[in-house]
Amino acid sequence: MRVEIWSDIACPWCYIGKARFTEGLAAFAHRDGVEVVFRSFELDPNSPRRATLPVVEMLAEKYGRTLDEARAMEEHVAAAARAEGLGYRTEGRDHGNTFDVHRLLHLAAARGRQEELLDLAYRANFAEERSVFDPEVLVGLAVEAGLDEAEARAVLADGSAYADAVRADEREAAELGANAVPFFVLDRRYGISGGQPAEVFTRALEQAWSGREAAAEPAPAAEACAPDEACAVPQV
């Protein structure tokens, strides 16, 4: 069974949702028979390449909030992340264009190291003092994930490398009706949106595995990130 996950490295609910999905998958009896594929989705594709803005400032500008209110929005997400055992810094993080990250993730997929790079990129972006929008940081993460340094540098230097693969993922997301991430597709039959609890993922995996043709029970609403919102978090 294949599970495809559309996500963006700039999306905190993708970071949290991946951890919850991993927990749900671990509780699934047939987990060894599940192939997980990560797909590209850019939350802010029109942002300037390699130009960044502090996350708190971006949230304040996007929502018309004060910096203190934006910090409170970040604290809400941080609490959810920490509840899953994930590191999360609410200050000092950057927001920017993630196209290069997605292109490098496609290289990693071609070399069988996609999830390794994704986990490192999430950790760098949300928990560490490293900006994934710095090409040198990206190269370091690629090497840490097991990729060849020269090949990673070549991909980043060539803006067309894996660009078509990223765009194809994004077109497919639109065709599937995914307008927020994370978005999970199980065997091209069931779709789940948002950072759902682990048990929701386990039930969905069991239902997909059973091969029933009846429609899947809709998952409850869960927090997600959408292109028309910096990230869908409760207003404070």
Rank of each mutant, 00 (worst) to 15 (best):
R20M: 04
F126V: 08
P197S: 01
H30Y: 01
E144N: 09
G146E: 11
V77N: 12
R65V: 15
A163M: 00
Y162W: 02
L105Q: 08
T90F: 09
R31Q: 05
A226W: 02
F21D: 06
F38T: 09
T98E: 13
A51R: 12
L67Y: 09
F41E: 05
E91D: 13
A230N: 08
T66M: 09
A208S: 05
V132Y: 11
E151W: 02
A51L: 00
Q196R: 05
D100K: 01
A222V: 07
L186N: 05
G159T: 00
A157M: 01
E84H: 08
G24Q: 00
A204P: 06
W209S: 00
A109E: 09
D134E: 14
L53W: 11
E42R: 08
A19K: 10
A72W: 08
A142N: 13
A80E: 13
V166N: 00
R167H: 04
A109W: 06
D228H: 15
E223K: 04
V37N: 09
A121C: 15
R39I: 05
L147P: 15
G17S: 06
A174V: 06
A216S: 07
A29I: 01
D94P: 11
E172H: 09
F183S: 03
L120Q: 10
G96Q: 06
A204C: 05
F183C: 02
R65F: 13
F99K: 01
F126S: 08
R167T: 04
R171H: 12
C225P: 15
A198F: 03
A121R: 06
D228P: 14
F28A: 02
K18C: 14
E69L: 11
F183Y: 13
D119W: 13
E75A: 06
A198K: 03
E128Q: 09
Y15T: 01
R2Q: 08
F41T: 01
V200C: 07
Y122R: 00
A127D: 09
R39F: 11
A163E: 00
L186Y: 11
A226I: 09
V155Q: 14
Y88E: 04
E128H: 12
D32G: 11
N97M: 02
